[in-house]
C-alpha cells in the first residue's frame, strides 16, 4: 500500500480545523451556534472523506463524500425545522 502523503498532511490539518469548531459547538452559547458548528464540521468532513479516498488511492470514496454533502444540508434544514416548529411532520 502506497500512501499519498500530501493528502495525509492535508487531512491532518482538516481534522485540526474540526477540533477547533468543536470548541465552538461546546461553548455555544445559543443553539444556532451549535447548528452552525455542525454544518461547518459536515463541510470539513466532505473534504476529509474525499482526501481519504486519495490517501489510500481508492477514489470510490468520492461517492460517499457526495452523499455526505447532500445529507449535511438536509440535516441542517431538518434540525432548524424541528427547533422552529417542535416537530418534523
Amino acid at each position: 500500500m502506497q500512501f499519498d502523503w500530501a493528502a495525509v498532511a492535508a487531512g491532518a490539518v482538516i481534522l485540526l480545523g474540526v477540533c477547533l469548531v468543536l470548541i465552538r459547538a461546546y461553548r455555544g452559547p445559543t443553539s444556532y451556534d451549535r447548528i452552525l458548528s455542525a454544518n461547518a464540521i459536515g463541510t470539513k468532513t466532505v473534504i476529509f472523506i474525499a482526501l481519504l479516498g486519495f490517501m489510500t488511492r481508492r477514489p470510490e470514496f468520492l461517492d460517499i463524500a457526495l452523499l455526505y454533502g447532500l445529507l449535511n444540508f438536509i440535516t441542517t434544514i431538518a434540525i432548524l425545522k424541528f427547533i422552529e416548529y417542535k416537530r418534523l411532520g
Binding site: 466532505v46 454533502g69 444540508f73
Partner: peptide
C-alpha cells in the same frame, strides 16, 4: 464527481447559512 461536489457545496452552503441566520433572526437574536 469532484466537480459535482464543488457544485453541491456552492448551492447548499449559502442556502444553509441563510436558513440558520433567518431562524436566529426570527428568534430575536
Amino acid at each position: 464527481k469532484l466537480l459535482l461536489i464543488v457544485g453541491i457545496i456552492f448551492v447548499t452552503a449559502p442556502a444553509a447559512s441563510h436558513a440558520i441566520s433567518k431562524a436566529a433572526f426570527l428568534d430575536g437574536l
